[in-house]
């Protein structure tokens, strides 16, 4: 089904469309959340909250504001960051911060059953350190260009192009 139609139905509180969208994005959203909270059980809990939140404010999404995935990604990152900052949350793995996504992909056994598994592991394995960090900041931590530039201590104008080059490598590996 055309994704635009699914999103339209989702905005009209169609449970079936919601289920389809969930099936499309649950892995990505869970991955992003787990990358931040670094705890499988907490990440599942937050994933549930994120999709409930998405359903409850589905009318607020318009394609003019951005991609539907990006909208979900935003909700997920915010919820995960809120969770990490909450009093009840004890983060024991703070130090694994930057290359956590690389680490979790490299050690992800369940990935092997999926398509692109070889490509993505190959990509991650030979990923330059500067790419690991920029992808982590921009996609999985939700940093702005300015924040990314400051964190990487590079000029603001470099962020866009460097990020593009890193994603180009990924696309080559994934053949997309």
């Amino acid at each position: 089904m055309e994704i635009e139609l699914l999103i339209k139905k989702f905005k009209n509180k169609d449970a079936k469309a919601f289920e389809s969208l969930y099936a499309m994005y649950n892995d990505s959203i869970f991955g992003v959340i787990n990358n931040i909270v670094k705890n499988d059980d907490v990440a599942m809990e937050v994933t549930q909250d994120v999709f409930i939140k998405a359903w409850n404010k589905s009318e607020s999404y318009t394609s003019k504001k951005g991609r539907f995935f990006t909208w979900l990604l935003n909700i997920a990152r915010n919820a995960a960051i809120d969770k990490v900052r909450s009093k009840s949350f004890k983060n024991a793995q703070q130090n694994l911060d930057v290359d956590f996504f690389v680490h979790s992909i490299e050690t992800n056994d369940s990935l092997d059953q999926k398509t692109n598994a070889i490509g993505i592991k190959k990509y991650v394995g030979k990923l330059a350190e500067k790419c690991k960090r920029i992808v982590q900041y921009i996609y999985f931590k939700g940093y702005t260009q300015k924040e990314t530039a400051e964190a990487l201590e590079i000029p603001l104008g470099t962020v866009k192009t460097r990020n593009r080059n890193c994603i180009k490598e990924l696309r080559k590996a994934l053949e997309v």
Binding site: F51, I52, F69
Partner: peptide
């Protein structure tokens, strides 16, 4: 779409758990 595809695939590659069953809980809660 290509960029989005790459990013969702990358993000999904971090998912070490199958979370498809969570949708039942979501449905129940909603």
């Amino acid at each position: 779409l290509s960029i989005e595809n790459a990013i969702t695939t990358l993000a999904a590659a971090m998912a070490n758990k199958d979370t498809s069953a969570i949708f039942e809980a979501i449905k129940e809660e909603l």
